[in-house]
Simulated scan of single mutants.
Amino acid sequence: MKIHLDIDCTPDEARRFLGLPDVAPMQEALMKQVQERMEANLKALEPEALFQTWLPASIQGMEQLQKLFWSQMASGGSGSDGKSEKS
């Protein structure tokens, strides 16, 4: 013997009929938190913020390297003892 039932109801009606909890408020709160976190992360992805977080030490190192090059050029390329090296 076979029995075939077709039930036409919405998911909300089925949930209430089966006694399952309504998780819509929890989902809304969770989605709000996810949205806030995504917005905060997107702000961190702005080019200026990326350069500030990734390159501060590198930029300072580049500035020091540039100053070293300029000082060497200004002194005529001499070595540390003040005499130019000949090959």
Rank of each mutant, 00 (worst) to 15 (best):
M62G: 09
L5R: 06
C9H: 02
G76Y: 03
Q66W: 08
I59E: 10
K32H: 10
R16L: 14
A74M: 08
R16I: 02
G19T: 05
F69N: 14
V34W: 08
E39Q: 08
E36G: 04
E39H: 03
D8S: 11
D22K: 03
E63C: 03
E28Y: 05
K67W: 05
Q33E: 15
E63H: 04
L50A: 02
R15K: 01
M31K: 15
P47M: 03
D8P: 01
Q66S: 11
E39S: 01
E85N: 14
G61T: 01
G79P: 00
A40P: 02
K43C: 00
E85S: 13
S75L: 07
L20R: 10
Q60F: 04
L55T: 06
A40R: 13
A24Q: 09
D81P: 05
L30V: 13
F51W: 15
F69V: 15
D12S: 15
E13Y: 04
G77P: 01
D81C: 05
M1V: 10
L65Y: 14
E85A: 12
L45A: 06
H4P: 00
W70I: 14
A24C: 08
A49W: 04
W54G: 00
K86N: 10
P47N: 08
A74P: 01
L42D: 12
E85F: 09
